[in-house]
Nucleic acid binder design. Structure first.
Lengths: 362, 362
DNA sequence: GTGAAAGCGCTAACAG
DNA sequence: CTGTTAGCGCTTTCAC
């Protein structure tokens, strides 16, 4: 077998470094880094302005000249220095996406959506894992102020967004999934209240009366909205929700769901169904249920939320609320691009439809 | 319930945009964007050089002057324009990380490792999903040439890395997980050959003789190495590997694993154990096995590779080879930083230890 | 200690 | 059509 992993002593297999501690030193401004636009101009026998024109595809260049420039570019292996271009045009063509945890598959698909429209519009996307930490969040917002990025999409808890306060109001950003309509920031999300109600009503339809809720941190607006949807759906059915059926977790990890479910089952009058506000949680719940000898859905039914691709793969397949993840990301990116194009226009808030997906778990 | 999702018509809930098609226009260079360093200098009654000095924490500034500058900065809400700074210092402080599919949880943890050391060294990390597409790969490498980024970490298939050819040899990048030692590019990874052998030998120990291999695209060096490890382990045990037990998939999705496993079971003399080269595949395999009525591990044992956090959660818990994902990422980032700090130093290739984790599936 | 001035490489008027 | 020129905002010698 292999040695036990050891942080301190990776096995050096070949070569050697003369610099054990990485201590980046500034790259010399005058490094032999290939030619600048001036070099190309000289080589082609034209002015830098002309080179710039062909670089940017302007019309007013005689074909012969253009060809000469192109040849010079080719011969010299020239590449524009975007740093310089960006300074001149006052834009970085970089978009920030801030997520609380990019290990969660839910975000992966959203981020793909953002990335695809960003790229289609000539922007690159920088993915930032904030860990739902206000400090990190703030430091990323600072990138906007420092012109490191042109705009941002924030998926962090609404509470954190609010903490940024009015100071950030004017910055070019939009909220995705988590948003406070009052804040005046463009947003895209779903109707969490109704979606949660749909899930609970499905459980009700299946004959369940004791329905537990495994919720995430209440810092998330979606957590509050889904809880309300759950509460009201129960009340509407003439059921008085027992507070002991509800749990709030500060993590969406599988493990968190597993131990929460196991805990819930310890109660004398334990729920016969559990609604978890995230598929990752729900998958953990199923695991936790099994660990205390409960069968799903026979002993306890489980419903999740998001419909990540994994949901259909586990045993039993997960009944869940599908969010249009890809579309959420795409819309967020489009809203941001709109705002960038037209800073003073008021950009809409958008709600996308969700869908109940019934599988084996409930 | 809700309407069916529709790509073309998101429900606009509030506000309205005057610009339906995002058509970014250049931000005016002279925008009212807060003061520049010159403004601060004027306000503090000093030169821009002095402001720059306090900004960068240089020693030779009289405390009184420093305070005056700091006050001016504070009062004006000044933020350095990193675009300008970057042009001047000829570095972007941006690192690229290229992954073939960032939906795979395996990469998430590696990327976290990269991100943490990058940030600790004052760099931001741009995550790029190449989809294992050479064209996208190339375009990201171009960011290095255009100075959009200072360095890159590539997790894409070795075949693609090689396709980049010598042209990229001089660029500041390192390979992670996928690497060709011959290429002269710094790398970090594990001993895939031995790791695969360890997995297969474990299956052998459990008494299995007919062991299937569900492999990924052979473009990946790891796929070839793990296959060889599998083959040799079998041969060493005096078993002639049946080619019908082997499958190559061009995806690591759960679905791919599921249908591959189902297919494998159709054979007359189907394997009694399956080694999948990725946990995501293995999870799909278990699902696929179940769908054709096979129990795991009683009818068919399953071993995976990676040890993503999900592996312990599914039923049955997955026996797998653990890769030190976090450490792989951290090491890759450190190697890159080393290379940046000292371009001509030859940076080492590093192999990190793996570990067999025995759970319920095999 | 502090200031003046020279660029980093590029784009965009403005002339011609 | 093409060239000249003036910066974008910052860092960094080089004087004083």
């Amino acid at each position: 077998m292999s040695r036990t992993p050891s942080r301190s002593s990776p096995a050096v297999v070949s070569g050697a470094s003369s610099q054990p501690q990485p201590q980046p030193q500034r790259r010399s401004p005058r490094a032999a880094d290939g030619p600048s636009i001036a070099g190309v101009a000289e080589q082609a026998g034209v002015s830098v302005a002309t080179v710039s024109r062909v670089l940017n595809g302007h019309e007013n260049v005689r074909p012969a000249t253009r060809d000469r420039v192109l040849a010079a570019i080719d011969a010299s292996g020239y590449r524009v220095n975007e740093l310089a271009r960006n300074l001149r045009t006052a834009e970085s063509r970089l978009l920030l996406t801030m997520v609380p945890d990019f290990g969660n598959p839910f975000y992966a698909e959203i981020v793909r959506g953002i990335d695809s429209v960003a790229r289609r519009h000539g922007y690159f996307m920088l993915l930032c894992d904030t860990g739902a930490d206000p400090g990190r969040e703030r430091s990323y917002f600072d990138m906007l102020r420092r012109r490191r990025a042109d705009g941002a999409i924030c998926l962090d808890p609404a509470t954190i967004q609010q903490a940024l306060g009015e100071a950030s109001q004017a910055l070019p950003w939009v909220a995705c999934c988590e948003f406070d309509p009052q804040m005046g920031v463009p947003y895209v999300g779903i109707d969490n209240y109704r979606a949660a109600g749909d899930a609970v009503r499905h459980l009700l339809t299946r004959g369940h009366r004791r329905i537990g809720l495994i919720n995430s941190d209440i810092d998330y607006l979606y957590a509050r909205q889904r809880q309300q949807g759950y509460l009201d759906a129960l009340s509407d059915a003439g059921i008085a929700p027992d507070p002991r059926w509800r749990m709030n977790l500060n993590s969406l990890d599988y493990e968190a769901g597993a131990s929460a479910a196991a805990g819930l089952m310890l109660q004398p009058d334990a729920p016969s169904a559990i609604f978890a506000v995230s598929d990752t949680l729900a998958i953990g719940v199923i695991h936790g249920l099994r660990s205390v000898g409960k069968r799903v859905p026979d002993d306890v039914a489980v419903a999740g939320f998001d419909d990540i691709s994994l949901a259909a793969q586990i045993d039993p397949p997960l009944t869940t609320i599908a969010q249009p993840m890809r579309e959420l990301g795409e819309t967020a990116a489009r809203l941001l691009l709109q705002r960038l194009a037209n800073p003073q226009a008021n950009v809409p808030g958008v709600l996308l439809p969700h869908r109940l997906v019934i599988r084996g778990s409930a």
